[in-house]
Amino acid sequence: MRVITSYYGITGPVPFVDVDVTADNPLYLDPHAIRLLRGPNPYAAAAVECMDTFLHEVTSCVIGGPSFHRRGKDLLQHFVEPWETRLGMSEEGFRGHGGAEVVGEWIWNTVTGDVEALVRIGALRQLEDLPLFVKGIDRDITSDVTTRIVFAPLARFTEEMLATYPEFSSAGHTTKSYRRQVWNPVLREWDVEEFTLPVANGKPLLLVPKGWARPTLLMSATRYYETTVLSFAQLEQAVVTSDGKLLKTPKDKLKVQPGLERGRGTILRVTKRAIETEQDLIRAFKAFVDARFEAGIRDEEEAA
């Protein structure tokens, strides 16, 4: 394994994810982690702006006419396969699922089909909501899609690291200018920019700020189902006893009930039922995730 710091001879702690530059790494860019870390971080703030303007542009096209539909579908056809970050596993990402265009088709067909109602009422509003409802979109594809959308902030962070660590361009190591497709949040169009990136093992390297990549997604379909979706189903079936106690069906028994089995079909049905009673399960799930994330950070700080 040749992680970035050993490959370049950098010592001490670094503010980027220290991945193996010669192989895939089982870490995934997590859009919700980026959102939670944006605070005073200009790169995270820029990344969130890219994610939000991109999804807003796509979902706006969903509720428009045929010309808007053509534009929305086209916006999802520009996810060229990433490898600059070395994150994710190739067989699980774009390459392993028939290519980026196929993935774009999945997303468009879902937001104009099964979840169009959620788009129209604004329940599906952030990039990290997609894995909850789009079949086939898990940590790998989410990471690939997010990387393409936030490529410009990642590249600018990388350029700052080049200025901070001279090791990237010394002892025989080189940097090179690359023209890359980026999402332009002002124009709300795909654009092209030129960046200077380090060259590692003969290929461009894109650095990722610490905390942006995780082995699992904070907002995964499995976590949403296991927590918020089943909790709502418990309340739907709960019975109040004569002494005022609330009896709830255990989650393991709910999972084998028809209509509540694991899967995105169940997730969508229960989410829609909750909306009919004016309950936003997606928002509730994010509140749960955010609280756990913040508690984890506090625990790390106290242990340090």
Rank of each mutant, 00 (worst) to 15 (best):
S60H: 11
V62I: 13
V62C: 09
V62P: 07
V62Y: 03
I63E: 12
G64D: 08
G65A: 13
G65L: 07
P66T: 12
P66G: 00
P66W: 06
S67A: 14
S67Q: 06
S67F: 04
S67N: 01
S67V: 11
S67H: 02
S67M: 10
F68G: 03
F68A: 13
F68K: 14
F68D: 15
H69M: 05
H69N: 11
R70L: 14
D74F: 07
L75R: 04
L76H: 09
L76R: 03
Q77S: 14
H78L: 12
F79L: 12
F79Q: 13
V80D: 15
V80E: 14
V80T: 15
E81W: 05
E81S: 14
E81Q: 13
P82T: 01
W83P: 08
E84L: 06
T85G: 13
R86Q: 14
L87A: 09
G88A: 04
G88T: 00
M89T: 01
E91T: 08
E92G: 04
E92K: 10
G93T: 00
G93C: 03
G93M: 11
G93N: 05
G93E: 11
F94A: 12
R95A: 14
R95G: 03
R95E: 13
G96Q: 08
G96R: 06
H97I: 02
G98M: 09
G99I: 03
A100G: 07
V102N: 08
V102Y: 11
V103S: 05
V103H: 09
E105C: 10
E105M: 06
E105I: 10
W106P: 09
I107E: 08
I107N: 00
I107D: 12
W108K: 08
T110H: 10
T110A: 11
T112E: 11
D114E: 15
V115T: 11
E116D: 06
I121A: 03
I121Q: 06
I121S: 12
G122S: 03
L124R: 00
R125F: 00
Q126S: 15
L127D: 05
E128I: 00
D129R: 04
L130D: 08
L130M: 09
P131Y: 07
L132R: 06
V134L: 01
K135M: 02
G136M: 03
D138A: 14
R139I: 02
D140K: 09
T142Y: 06
T142G: 00
S143K: 04
D144R: 00
D144G: 13
V145S: 01
V145D: 12
T146S: 13
V150Q: 07
F151Q: 11
P153W: 02
P153E: 09
L154S: 09
L154T: 12
A155T: 06
A155Y: 04
A155S: 08
R156M: 15
R156C: 12
F157P: 03
F157Q: 01
F157N: 00
T158I: 05
T158L: 08
T158C: 04
E159H: 08
E159A: 06
E160W: 03
M161A: 04
M161P: 08
M161F: 04
M161T: 05
L162P: 08
A163N: 13
T164K: 14
Y165S: 03
